[in-house]
């Protein structure tokens, strides 16, 4: 209202844009930093709810087929590499620990330490993907990737019930679910790297978007923990199916 009429609409607009660029920690739609931080955390959790449901549909599909074809799942899961899976679980749990330390040090405003732990998290993420890559590569080599070249052979020692239940198509179903679920998870790991790496650099440089407040780091960490939680379930469900 106080703006002069002669200044016109354009002036007010540019003023608004400028205000947006230099908004400091609090965006224009919020009253104070408390409201903004709480909004971001709730928003992040609402997003994680969608992520849970996103994976949820796959978990249901997994449960249905494991219930329907128990022997197929037992026989096919023997082709997965348990030591590698175990290593990957270890890596992801560790990375979760690292990222929580990053948040911790960001809260204490020790930016270098925060960035360091973030970089270590990213390192873990890369390690996870590399191991996953080896696993996938091996599956390609032996023809366990669903598609026209899929092959699956039961070991001769398999029980007669297994021989009756296990078909190539059903084994392909298992590997289809395996690739769908670990693949989707892998994409999330990749996205995590794409979020955490720039974040670490921005913290190091002192970019005001991320150092005014620790919430951006906390949100990235929440996402990363979620990725970890998914793997906590994927690992026993695929690699450690009870044989009995």
């Amino acid at each position: 209202m106080a703006i002069e009429a002669t200044q016109g609409a354009v002036h007010e607009h540019t003023a608004a844009v400028a205000a947006q660029d230099e908004h400091g920690p609090v965006h224009h739609q919020f009253e104070d930093i408390e409201q903004q931080n709480e909004s971001y955390i709730v928003g992040m959790w609402a997003f994680l709810v969608t992520e849970i449901m996103f994976f949820g549909a796959l978990f249901l599909a997994y449960a249905v087929y494991r219930w329907k074809y128990p022997l197929v799942f037992i026989e096919a899961h023997k082709m997965l590499d348990i030591p590698l899976g175990l290593t990957n679980t270890f890596i992801l749990l560790t990375s979760s620990f690292f990222v929580v330390l990053a948040v911790h040090y960001h809260k204490l405003n020790r930016r270098k330490l925060a960035a360091t732990w973030l970089f270590l998290t990213v390192l873990c993420a890369f390690g996870f993907l590399v191991i996953k890559g080896f696993e996938y590569g091996h599956k390609f080599k032996v023809g366990h990737v669903p598609g026209p070249n899929f092959t699956f052979e039961l070991p001769a020692s398999a029980s007669p019930e297994a021989k009756e239940q296990v078909t190539v198509e059903r084994a392909q179903l298992f590997f289809g679910l395996y690739f769908a679920m670990t693949g989707l998870h892998g994409i999330h790991v990749l996205v995590g790297i794409l979020i955490l790496t720039p974040l670490a650099f921005m913290i190091l440089k002192g970019h005001h978007h991320v150092v005014d407040d620790y919430i951006p780091t906390e949100m990235a960490a929440l996402y990363w923990h979620f990725v970890d939680v998914v793997w906590i379930f994927l690992f026993p469900l695929f690699y450690l199916i009870p044989l009995h």
Partner: peptide
């Protein structure tokens, strides 16, 4: 992980509700 690393244990009731809602649904 959820309670400690994701700080739900120390968060507002709203966060609790949303964290739980996802798993219940």
């Amino acid at each position: 992980v959820i309670l400690y690393f994701m700080h739900v244990r120390f968060s507002t009731r709203l966060t609790w509700i949303y964290a739980a809602a996802g798993f219940v649904w």
